[in-house]
Design a protein around this nucleic acid. Sequence first.
RNA 1: GUGCCUGUAGCUCAACCGGAUAGAGCUUCUGACUUCGGAUCAGAAGGUUGGGGGUUCGAAUCCCUCCAGGCACGCCA
Length: 577
Amino acid sequence: MLRLRDLWKMETFQSLLARRLSAALTALGVSQAGELTSATDPRFGDYQTNAALVLAKQRGENPRALAQSIIAVLDVGDVAEPPQVAGAGFINFRIKREAIVAKTRDLVGDEQLGVTPTTDPRKIVIDFGSPNVAKPMHVGHIRSTFLGDALARIAQFVGHDVIRDNHLGDWGTQFGMVIWGWKHLLDRDALARDSIAELVRLYKETNERAANDESVREAARAELVKLQSGDPENFAIWKQCVDLSMREFERAYELLGIKYDIVRGESFYNDRLAAVVERLLRAGIAEISEGAVCVFFRDVPDLADKPCIIRKRDGGYNYATSDIATVDYRVQDLQRDTIWIVTGAPQQLHFRQIFEIARREGDTADFRHITHGSILGEDRKLMKTRSGENVPLRDLLEEAISRAGRIVAEKNPDLREEERAHIAKVIGIGAVKYADLSQYRMTDYVFSWDKMLSLHGNTAPYLQNAYVRIRSIFRKLGHAFVAPEKIALAEAAEIQLAKKLCQFAEVVPQVLNDFRPNILGNYLFELANNFHAFYEECPVLKAAEPARSSRLLLCELTARVLGRGLDLLGIGVPEKM
RNA sequence: GUGCCUGUAGCUCAACCGGAUAGAGCUUCUGACUUCGGAUCAGAAGGUUGGGGGUUCGAAUCCCUCCAGGCACGCCA
């Protein structure tokens, strides 16, 4: 049975102070205003609120005086020192040492490390990655895949119901070329060796021939029409292409530790497209223009001259049609109330149109198009190989792993071969992922092996190393660590580290505000810094009790937060490195 | 032409919904070790937040305008 006075331990200091502030404002008979955030500077304590400033502005009063009257009715004595008015009218809070110590002790017993379930659980479908069949995965898929996976992990961790959907590009016009090539140019041995490479070759060679030969062009188009009208032979070829590609993708996902709940490619929506167009026409949302079926947005200034075509003049459907059908499926069949689509920024107009159409149909689901920037090469242009092609994901990951392997071999030559191989994988993949996720998603970034694999700075290896150092302490301890009932923290470095640990629960939900995993990365980096400062300042194993057990507990928690935090970004941790 | 995104220290990037003296890392410089993994820590230097207006107690953040780069704009996805 939970005792009442312990209730506060279950929520973050931030949330608790916000509730107390809210109660104080109510007691004063004024409206809720401002926000309660962590302090911008340690001088100002641990948390601050600008409520008095905002209220004073609304009411034309003196902000500092208002702050004083808020403090007079504010009841935070159980967790904080008496609040102070500062600056123009900020109210600053400093958390009591006992409160930090008690909460830190309690975190050890909490699987969630203080993160409480969201008060607004959603049924989310996340659409991310979405590679194209018969093409290799390449750098262009990295950001969507890593970002989507991290958001899915975080959303799940805070208590949302998440379905991860791989919306494969499996029904494009490229299949006319691929099928023609399959029938005329297929090399079975090559297909067995490297199926994707062979499929790419078929596409490219057919494309070249079609460029110079009208009859090939015609024949490829005819193959596409046959596929779309359900010709069994072409369908079988197409199916093989999809299966071979999927096998290849799954190898990459296996290496990357990425899982999907469902795979619904564009082809899945095929038999729903006609009905979508009919429905929109009947509802008067769509109309016929220049022979095509279009949706116009005449009442939306930005979109007024940007119609969305949902059936081409030749009667064919395009990706707008299938994306509308996809929305239907997600809302109706999957019963989702929230749809997150993670793609590059160029598709913004497209999804604005799709969401606008859904709204016109009365759809009230929460649609979010989560966009991201590009990965650039050293020349600051889109990252390509020397020959100007997209860099295959497989090559990139292999290089990451081998580079990580070389570094590990140099730093720690005593490791067994297979152990080193495992560590190289965790570090190499982690480095690539972290380089991506630690950056604001909208800005382009320059891909740099040296930076992402550096042991210094805000990198995965640095964070992993902090974890490894802690694991090393526990190996040296020689027996299982049992957390003491009470802990004692006295040193500044201990308190600072404990505070940081308590903030994990404040940071994780924040990521979903604007879909910014880089906030979590930043937090983990600060945590690792705080840990290293503590480690430098405070001996652990050599300390006398009760400091020794207390410090071991800090180490244990730090390792768990680092491990969990990285896990939420889809990144693993080794025991040694 | 219209719309969207980006512009922050020499370089790579942070700054959650408008908060206090804009923060890190890399680089450079100065200190601290026969350390529990120094793969570290402490400190210094480095800025007209692309330019210019505006809104207000307060702006990197919001509004207007200009500059630079990227992207998208009816039958590709």
